[in-house]
């Protein structure tokens, strides 16, 4: 609509939105500035630029990384996110295809249970889920992948089945008549067509798993493993005043990779959000 016509007074819109954009990024910039400030000054003078005796170079970063074990938390988060997403994509796309192509009471029941699971808040299952994970020895970065597949299956199955319904049968039938097994048919014919949906699912699940706090906090053995949100919250932990300097540094380290990832993959992220919303 009206795409070609420049809006009347467009320059004022541009200026207004530019100001609003500055307001939007200000909180992040503020944290960045404070990450170079001596910790006692952060709560007292959050809006001043760190100069002379306030400036501490990378001291806060060294502190924050040491106190939280942020490097290994970063590795754990990365491992859990990447492998959970891969596992979710492969398993739920196969499940979705099976559900649509083999119509019987069992598959349709499973489908409706998946839909149902999407509206259940995590608090409903948090206690029992963490106990079950413990009993089955899933309290580690490998075991939690299975938990994420189970708890994240709802949305993924829903999005994939929505897409499979629109794929015509002819190609698959031709492939099977030519002697392909269902597995070959799926990976050679069906999965390549599903790619856009797979990207959307991957983006949505990665955003959820990377940022998730409560599930890994309750499921993981915290003496051995921490994710980034757990490491951040750990600074707040029981012992006295929070080291604000370390906190600022840790926040910056937590945000930077996400911003870079966003700027690189922006197109896919936004497309993923839109197609997820339309089907959700």
């Amino acid at each position: 609509m009206n795409e070609e016509k420049e809006v009347k007074g467009g320059i004022f819109f541009t200026i207004g939105f530019a100001l609003l954009s500055l307001v939007w990024v200000f909180p992040i910039i503020l944290v960045f500035i404070n990450s170079f400030k001596k910790k006692v000054y952060i709560s007292r003078q959050p809006f001043s630029i760190p100069t002379d005796n306030m400036f501490v170079k990378f001291e806060n970063y060294v502190n924050g990384i040491e106190k939280t074990g942020l490097i290994s938390a970063f590795g754990t988060s990365l491992f859990i996110t990447i492998f959970s997403v891969i596992f979710i994509i492969v398993c739920t796309s196969m499940a979705a295809w099976y559900i649509i192509r083999v119509r019987n009471k069992f598959t349709s029941m499973f489908y409706y249970l998946c839909l149902f699971s999407m509206i259940v808040p995590f608090q409903m299952v948090m206690f029992t889920l963490s106990k079950i994970a413990n009993m089955l020895h899933l309290s580690n970065p490998v075991g939690i992948i299975l938990i994420y597949l189970g708890f994240g299956a709802g949305l993924s199955v829903f999005m994939f089945t929505g897409f499979v319904k629109s794929i015509p049968l002819e190609m698959e039938e031709a492939a099977m008549i030519d002697g392909c097994t269902p597995l070959q048919t799926f990976f050679k014919i069906v999965f390549p067509v599903m790619k856009p949906t797979a990207v959307s699912v991957a983006i949505l699940q990665a955003m959820w798993i990377w940022n998730d706090y409560l599930l890994p906090y309750l499921v993981l053995d915290l003496k051995k493993y921490k994710t980034i949100p757990i490491a951040v919250q750990y600074l707040k932990g029981g012992y006295g005043a929070v080291d604000m300097g370390a906190m600022m540094a840790v926040l910056v380290i937590a945000v930077i990779p996400i911003v870079i990832f966003y700027l690189v993959c922006q197109k896919y992220i936004i497309a993923g959000v839109i197609s997820g919303a339309v089907k959700g």
Binding site: M94, L136, A153, G154, V157
Partner: peptide, 13 residues
């Protein structure tokens, strides 16, 4: 095709 997701779904949900 279905069993892995189904088992995980039982354990996780």
């Amino acid at each position: 095709f279905l069993l892995p997701t189904f088992l995980a779904f039982i354990i996780g949900f």
